[in-house]
Amino acid sequence: MKIMNCPLNGPRNISEFVHGGEVSQMPDPNSCSDMEWADYVFYSDNAIGIVTEWWLHAPSGYWFIAERHTASDEIIRTFDASEIFNQRYEFPIKAEEAVV
């Protein structure tokens, strides 16, 4: 059984984890083009090499981030999401919505 190290729960069988997709920078939803937003929501780079990904430890409902080599499937490092996302993002209210 392949083992993954959960930052909260420690080493666990890989069957306890769910892949959550690549970590990517969100464009400003109010100023970006539709193409940029669609790229963020629907597309992934699918690169060969070390990528940064969201993973879920399902029994504890804990989302964290892992660095993994997509060719060798070696997990380089796992860490809490607060290392990257250290403040809450408040979505700005669009002007027309604010009027309503």
């Binding site: 729960n9 666990r12 069988n13 069957s15 306890e16 399902a58 029994p59 504890s60």
Partner: peptide, 12 residues
């Protein structure tokens, strides 16, 4: 406490 899988079911 261990949050893990017991008999293939998520459990605490």
């Amino acid at each position: 406490i261990a949050q893990t899988s017991v008999a293939r079911v998520n459990a605490i």
